[in-house]
Design a protein around this nucleic acid. Structure first.
Lengths: 106, 106
DNA sequence: ACAATAGTTAGCATATATGCTAACTTATAT
DNA sequence: ATATAAGTTAGCATATATGCTAACTATTGT
């Protein structure tokens, strides 16, 4: 993901922004997390690609937020190569409400 | 995932248990989380399958922990149908250490 | 402005995920 | 014991994820 023109920037110029944002929020998060983890490890897309035996185009695909077909296996390889662990959790909406209430969040 | 004979039970009878456990821990977690979320929603595999327009065999495949080829899109559909949200996070090992230290965990 | 590095995109081949059917095993209830 | 429901497994067809190349655009530094 380039620094100068983010996916958010693109979306903000489009109609129906809010709708798309809601639909793609999950994916946006994944894309951003990959880029963040990679930057945190001081790696270029090419560097990361080499570490996991793929090419920079595959990394770019994952970091561009229109993408929505992530595989857990590849996400996990990417995370490890960036010195991170991939955590996947099913968060029950009901228990989250309780949690938020307990913490007096919104 | 059946109640009476779990994947853990199977593993415990095998040699090299620890090695396999470490390798498959992530997947084990996903499989278990799906089953837990489904049970929490009081759904059978068939029920869940209908909700997301697939079949019980597909659900069973995901709940059986030998599986390691999860797609985020399908996981997300499953989570929603169980009243849960799928959360995916890149957890930096470094920051986790700090966190554990702060909490005086191991 | 120029070169070098970084990131993106399109398009293709192949591997793998998903949906499906049907037969099987296991659990539950009567 | 039997019937019914629940879960598993195998095998197949199709959709899609992944790896790859090559050309393109953007960024950075001099």
């Amino acid at each position: 993901m380039r620094k100068n023109k983010t996916y958010m920037d693109k979306l903000l110029t489009e109609k129906g922004f809010r709708v798309k944002f809601d639909q793609e929020y999950q994916n946006l998060c994944i894309a951003e997390q990959i880029a963040q983890a990679r930057h945190h490890a001081h790696l270029t897309q090419s560097d990361l690609a080499k570490r996991i035996n793929t090419t920079k185009s595959a990394i770019s695909r994952y970091e561009n937020a229109g993408y929505n077909k992530y595989g857990v296996a590849l996400l996990s390889r990417i995370a490890k190569a960036c010195g991170a662990d991939l955590k996947i959790n099913f968060v029950c909406r009901e228990s989250r409400k309780k949690y938020q209430k307990a913490l007096k969040l919104k």
